[in-house]
Design a protein around this nucleic acid. Structure first.
Length: 820
DNA sequence: AATTCGAGTCTTTAGACAGCATGTC
DNA sequence: CTAAAGACTCGAATT
């Protein structure tokens, strides 16, 4: 069967597909067409990665649009949303408009309504449904990519409930679910009333095997000699071997999966030795350029280490990388410039990065709940192995596990090579998942009674998988109690209704538990502010009498210590603000940024930082020093679990405070043991939660000061600056660094900037004319031209002094970058 | 005397969605 | 009930 056999596509599309080289459909694609994907029929396609799933989705969506409909493509990751959008945009010449909607980025709302195909994350779709996006009702076709993720306890329930809601809104909705090969695709198909298309077929052969001794033993019985030199690690031997084998003049790249970030970095460092020896001269030059670009992304150790690997042809990849790092590495690997990536599972789930050889080095991963190292799921290992084989480059892909003895080899064959993937099971019947979805379901009118709610939940995968209806009802009742107690819902006899605040929580996409924590915390903040100066102090354990009872002394000690220890003064100033306000509580707030950061950090919506050894003591001390700033009730220090959580949240809050005190990225990454990507993640989440807190405070009509404090704390974390720079960072083109330099040069407000002496502005911005002109224009200056203006010496001196070490450190690079 | 090597011990441990309204150095 | 790699530490051997 071929594209022109499908008569439901828009004119020209079959020809375009054939022009792309699709002379004949792959067997799973043909099966899907026979099942009616292009005729509006629902289909579940459970097929290996890279076997043409996307085309199945495209056939469904394009034919749906041709019939006058509208299609939605649901992805699990934001990065995949942009990838898919770019892919679908090639249909624009046939009149198909493509839009994206994620938390990060979204096409204009009105345009979205006019789009034919919309790509969005599952959470975003859920949110759009909650907020009654007008176009949801127009959908005729929904594609759910990677549906097997309904098995995920954190995010699976969202996908499940969202699909149920979409199907309820439009009874004739065509659902196309794309899944990795799983143990029970039939159950998924049954749930969605869809035809199942199941296949093991791959366009590129995948050889799976286990390396043991001096050879890879493949599943087809063949062997490949890969001797491990003395003092050499098997991984290095395998990477080198792949690179030495040329097929059509193309050398083999490798992907190595390991179980921790640290292992990824260490392995990449070692593998750099292997790749560096095998680079062509032109590649070396190219890699040097790439390394410089990577180093430029962020001034941190992670960035430097990555650059060092990359210049030798290897790289590591994990969630601690800045997103720019990630895409630079991914792109260079796809362009075959980087020969080998050592990665954590980020890469297995993310954007498409195929390699000739995939090495699953670590097949066990630490799991705290399990209490040790736990073998990875078959599904997960298969996902990694599925990355083997680059279409058009490799005749086959090789996926290799490592065994150090014969027994392990047998076990690995048994456990992964021959094994069927696990069945996917719904995780909906857990309290945290239901808490949020029950509220949303009631708030957006999908159910108005307990029975209606249960009837709706009966449309989920969970219900179709369980025989025990009581369990769901039982958890639902517990959740309803919780929501009623916290005033998110009202129960009147049998009927359920969301309160005004309940609606807000649902709309803001908050976990109700986060909302309850935030509301409690803010209320307490207001009360203690009203309670001028007599902020309640918690009692200390008896041995701690030497800690000054006076708040001012306590803060001074804290900040002095911090400043001394780090050799910079950024923390000091912030604590001083606290001093002034705390000492004069009669007309100042007792709601400090740290208090707010801590409040949002201990919410279930914020992913906690891990307390390392020594951290416990550090943050316990800070707990007592900053005690008055916390909003809400601190747990007793004898309640070990709760207290530790509180301290972990304090660590997160301190990170945010440091960021909002203009501490340099490298200092923060070092102090908290995180990567640049983690800082961005924390800051993003805090921004979102503080934005939600602001709206909750407004909605509850809390004291105006609190709203103002929340907004200021949010702005500070958003821009990464202290209070006094907020006005300057409001100017386009002025971020935390430039604002500080301008401030040091005596320019403190937008007006002062607009009317400032040009030479002072130029000096403060390190003599970069173009930048200075843009900044002045953004500030509203009529004649921003810098022609013939000389840098003011005092201003440029002040600017460099303000950012000391860093100026000498990257000065050369910054100038260099300026010319490009 | 400084440096290197190695055995034994200690420490640490993956990932990442969401509101709203626009733009870093 | 469960692991393993890397970082660190300390002491001995080497240069």
């Amino acid at each position: 069967m071929k594209p022109s056999d499908v008569h439901t596509l828009p004119d020209g599309v079959p020809e375009a597909l054939e022009a792309e080289g699709i002379a004949e459909f792959y067997p799973p694609q043909a099966a899907a067409v026979e099942a009616g994907v292009a005729d509006g029929e629902s289909v579940v396609a459970s097929v290996p990665t890279a076997s043409g799933k996307t085309l199945i989705a495209e056939l469904a969506m394009l034919s749906a649009v041709q019939r006058g409909g509208k299609a939605l493509y649901i992805v699990p990751l934001r990065a995949l949303a942009s990838e898919k959008k770019a892919e679908f945009e090639r249909w624009e010449e046939f009149g198909i408009d493509v839009g994206v909607s994620t938390g990060n980025y979204q096409s204009d709302g009105e345009w979205l309504a006019s789009c034919d195909v919309i790509v969005a994350t599952s959470e975003k779709v859920d949110s759009l449904v909650r907020n009654n996006a007008p176009w949801i009702g127009d959908l005729t076709c929904v594609v759910s990519d990677e549906v097997h993720l309904v098995d995920d306890s954190g995010r699976g329930p969202t996908l499940e409930v969202t699909l149920a809601k979409l199907r309820k809104i439009n009874r004739d909705l065509q659902v196309v679910a794309l899944s990795a090969t799983v143990g029970n695709a039939d159950e998924v198909a049954e749930w969605l009333d869809a035809t199942l298309v199941e296949s093991d077929w791959r366009p590129i052969e995948l050889k799976m095997g286990v390396h043991y001794g001096d050879a890879i033993n493949f599943d087809d019985g063949s062997q490949r000699e890969v001797p491990v030199g003395s003092g050499q690690k098997p991984t290095a031997a395998l990477v080198g071997d792949a690179l030495d084998e040329e097929v059509d003049g193309k050398r083999g790249s490798s992907l190595v999966f390991v179980n921790s970030r640290r292992n990824a970095e260490a392995a990449a460092g070692r593998l750099g030795d292997v790749t560096a020896k095998r680079l062509a001269p032109d590649e070396q030059a190219e890699l040097e350029r790439l390394a410089a670009e990577i180093r430029d992304v962020s001034d941190t150790d992670t960035s430097d280490d990555l650059a060092d690997c990359v210049r030798r042809g290897a790289a590591f990849h994990h969630a601690g990388l800045a997103s720019e790092h990630r895409s630079l590495v991914e792109d260079a690997f796809r362009d075959r410039l980087i020969k080998c990536i050592a990665a954590t599972p980020t890469l297995a789930a993310g954007v498409n990065t195929p390699a000739r050889r995939v090495i699953v080095r670590d097949w066990r991963r630490y799991d705290g709940e399990f209490g040790g190292m736990r073998p990875l799921d078959v599904l997960e290992v298969h996902q990694m192995m599925g990355r083997a084989g680059r279409p058009g480059l490799d005749p086959y892909g090789e996926a290799v596990l490592l065994a150090k003895d014969r027994d392990t080899m047998e076990e690995l064959f048994e456990r992964y090579v021959w094994a069927e993937p696990e069945a996917v099971r719904s995780k909906l019947a857990a309290e945290p998942a239901l808490r949020t979805h029950v509220l949303a379901t009631v708030a957006s009118g999908f159910a108005t009674t307990r029975e209606g709610l249960l009837a709706f939940l009966d449309r989920t995968l969970y219900a179709s998988q369980t025989d025990d209806d009581d369990r769901l009802a039982e958890v639902t009742d517990r959740v309803l109690d919780y929501l009623a107690v916290n005033d998110f819902l009202e129960r009147d006899g049998d009927s359920l209704q969301a309160t005004s605040i309940g609606h807000t929580v649902s709309r803001l996409y908050l976990d109700p538990m986060s909302a309850a924590e935030i509301v409690d915390g803010l209320r307490e903040g207001v009360e203690s502010a009203a309670d001028a100066g007599s902020a309640t102090r918690r009692s200390r354990p008896s041995g701690d009498a030497e800690v000054p009872a006076d708040a001012d002394a306590g803060f001074a000690t804290a900040s002095d210590l911090a400043a001394e220890a780090d050799g910079d003064d950024a923390t000091g100033g912030d604590a001083e603000d606290g001093d002034a306000e705390d000492g004069d509580a009669a007309d100042g707030p007792t709601v400090t940024p740290l208090g707010l950061y801590h409040l949002v950090a201990r919410t279930p919506d914020m992913y906690q930082l891990y307390l390392k050894s020594g951290d416990r003591q550090t943050y316990e001390e800070q707990f007592y020093e900053r005690e008055t700033e916390f909003l809400g009730h601190a747990p007793s220090e004898f309640d070990d679990v709760a207290f530790e959580d509180w301290l972990a949240a304090l660590k997160t809050a301190r990170l945010l405070e440091d960021w909002a005190s203009e501490l340099d990225e490298d200092v923060i990454t070092e102090r908290y043991g995180v990567g640049p990507g983690d800082i961005r993640g924390k800051v993003d989440t805090a921004e979102w939660l503080l934005g939600a807190a602001e709206q909750l405070a407004t909605e509850l009509d809390l004291d105006g000061d609190v709203v103002r404090d929340v907004r200021a704390a949010k702005k500070r974390v958003e821009d990464g600056v202290r209070e006094e720079l907020l006005e300057l960072t409001g100017v386009r083109g002025v971020g935390r660094k430039r604002a500080r330099r301008l401030f040091e040069a005596g320019i403190e407000t937008r007006t002062e900037l607009r009317d400032a002496d040009k030479s002072v502005v130029l000096g403060a911005l390190r003599g970069r004319e173009k930048t200075a002109e843009n900044v002045l224009r953004a500030a509203g200056r009529q004649d921003p031209s810098m022609d013939g203006v000389e840098s003011d010496a005092a201003a440029s001196a002040a600017a460099t002094a303000g950012s000391d070490g860093e100026a000498t450190d990257d000065g050369g690079q910054a100038t260099f970058g300026d010319f490009s």
